[in-house]
Every structure is written in C-alpha cells, then in structure tokens.
C-alpha cells in the first residue's frame, strides 16, 4: 500500500516547524503505524536525511509514550487504541495522512513529533498518591473494599498518561487525566485521609501548568485509548467543590 504523509518537522523547541510531504510505498496492511514510520525513517537515514523523531517505547499500548495526532485525531482513527496499536489496515491505500505532535501550551514540542509531557508528572507530584511510606502498611486484607468500587477504581487507574485527552480536547484541558487519578484514589478507602487536599492540590497544579478548562465536550473520552470515562471528571468536580467548601 502507498501513502502520502504530511509530517510535522521542527528542529527543536525554539525553531519554527512546518508540515513536510513524504510518500511511502510497499506498506504491509499488518504493519503497525509506528512500524510504517520505522520504514520511512529507514529510508530517510539511507538517503542521508534526518529521520523523524517520535516518542515510542513499549509498542503494546501500555507505557503511554507514543502520541501523534494522526489525520486530525489523537492516536489516529481507531477507537480505544494507542498509536502503536494502530495498524495500517485502518488507512485507505493511496490516502493522505497528516501526522502532527500533541498541541498544547503545556506540552511544548522538543523535536518533530516529540513533546514534553512533564506537566503530567508535576500534577501527580502535587497529590496523585497515597502518603504511605514503605513499611507502614497494615495487612492487605484488613480493609475489605467493595468489589464494585475496586473495579471502578481500576477503570480509572487504567490511564496511561499519554496525553491524548489534552491533545483531543479543543480547549487542551487535562481534566480526564487528572480526574482519573483523583477518582481512583477517591474510590478507595486508602485514599480517604488525603482526599480533600489531593483534589485541591492536583487541580491547582493543573491550572498552574496552563492547561485549558473543561467545557464537557467529551472529545477526551472519545479518544482515550484506555476508555477513561467522563464520569471521572464529574467525580473530580464534586471532590474539588466539596473540598473547596470545607477546606480551612
């Protein structure tokens, strides 16, 4: 199969970028999208050109390292999949594919398609944890947790921190990411003691990082490779509002 690619090229964070056209031929439909880029890069290196930088690591949809805004969508056209889980059979032979980095002020471009997502780490550092030092834990079964709650917590905890929610959101909001962590810990008794302060600190950090605001458009949910639900955002709003009301 053959494709016309329009790829965002940008030397570094300071320089201007632009879309550059590439054509790529003899692509196998069972190739993953990143393998297609591997082939393209291989061609570029052999021609003595600079290969395209893109983030990737596990290539099985769990590390959250791969990104890419493909033909207008975060992680491409396939539902509930990361870019590394996207296969070329999803694209029409001879078609044009746009490949751009995540776009958000809080995710500055490092090179080509690679962005800096450390803002997410700082949000977690602000409160996305249970403060329990190693060795302080009681026996794991001392605190039974309703199965349904554990399952819901797991649904939220499945977030891989890839940033597709920010990339897909017309407002570049990070609410789905932040709410997934707040939800997970709010649903479990272990998260209880820090529940209020966590909601406040994480939301404040999110705002400080310059992400946009949620207007409940729902693009994040639709594009999330791990199908994190909007209900988490509602839960976060609830946690935050209540915490703001009672926090002294």
């Amino acid at each position: 199969m053959k494709y016309n690619l329009k790829v965002w090229r940008q030397k570094n964070s300071k320089s201007e970028g632009k879309l550059v056209d590439y054509t790529i031929d003899s692509i196998n439909p069972d190739m993953s999208f990143l393998e297609m880029l591997d082939v393209l890069n291989d061609n570029l290196v052999r021609k003595g050109e600079d290969p395209i930088a893109f983030d990737h690591d596990c290539r099985e949809g769990i590390c959250g390292m791969c990104s890419l805004h493909i033909s207008g969508r975060a992680h491409g056209p396939q539902h509930a999949a990361t870019t590394c889980q996207l296969y070329m059979r999803s694209f029409k032979d001879g078609g044009t594919i746009y490949i751009e980095p995540w776009r958000a002020k809080s995710f500055p471009v490092i090179k080509d398609l690679v962005t800096d997502r450390s803002a997410f780490d700082r949000i977690i550092a602000a409160g996305g944890f249970v403060s329990v030092n190693t060795g302080q834990a009681q026996d794991a079964n001392n605190l039974p947790i309703e199965q349904a709650h554990a399952e819901k917590a797991m649904d939220a905890a499945a977030c891989i921190g890839c940033g597709a929610c920010v990339a897909a959101c017309p407002n570049s909001a990070a609410m789905l990411f932040v709410s997934a962590k707040i939800s997970q810990l709010a649903l479990l008794p272990q998260g209880g003691p820090e529940r209020n302060i966590r909601a406040i600190n994480m939301v404040n950090q999110m705002d400080a990082e310059g992400f946009g605001n949620c207007t409940n458009i729902g693009a994040c949910e639709a594009e999330c490779p791990k199908e994190i639900k909007l209900t988490n955002i509602a839960r976060m709003n609830r946690e935050y509002l209540l915490a703001s009301l009672i926090n002294e």
Partner: peptide, 22 residues
C-alpha cells in the same frame, strides 16, 4: 507478603472477590 500490603496501601486496585478481599 509485605509487598502486597504496601501496594494495597498505596491504592493499587488489585482484583477483589465479592467479599471485598483480595
């Protein structure tokens, strides 16, 4: 054994049975 205790305390959502135990 301590690992499981530690991880549960950190909020790792391990699978649970209907009684709420691991």
């Amino acid at each position: 054994r301590n690992i499981i205790d530690q991880c549960v305390a950190q909020g790792v959502p391990f699978a649970r049975d209907y009684g709420g135990l691991l």
